[in-house]
Amino acid sequence: MRKRHRLNLLLLLVLFCIAALEFGVSLPPVPAATRPILALPAAIMAVLVALGYMRLLDAPAIARGFAMAGIFWLAILLGLAMTDPLTRTIYAVTRQIGS
């Protein structure tokens, strides 16, 4: 039981560091193209919480299967859907209705 508490506390500190890092990195102006790197700290924190606090590793085998299925299908949704706007050559012209 003591080991579990120490592990939880360590994970808390690691998460705080990543959150602080993420907050810090975003302050200086970063060119628009490299902004997706902000997804990296968020993804790392999410995986850490899933493994640490949600104890994905000692959950039953199919629970790990369901978690992987969720991630895989999310990747399909994001990946395949983005092939359209990224390669669509014609301009989507916007016409502003003045508020």
Binding site: Y91, V93, R95
Partner: peptide, 10 residues
């Protein structure tokens, strides 16, 4: 055509 229209509108 699209570039011209786009430049007029935005």
């Amino acid at each position: 055509d699209r570039y011209i229209r786009d430049s007029i509108m935005q």
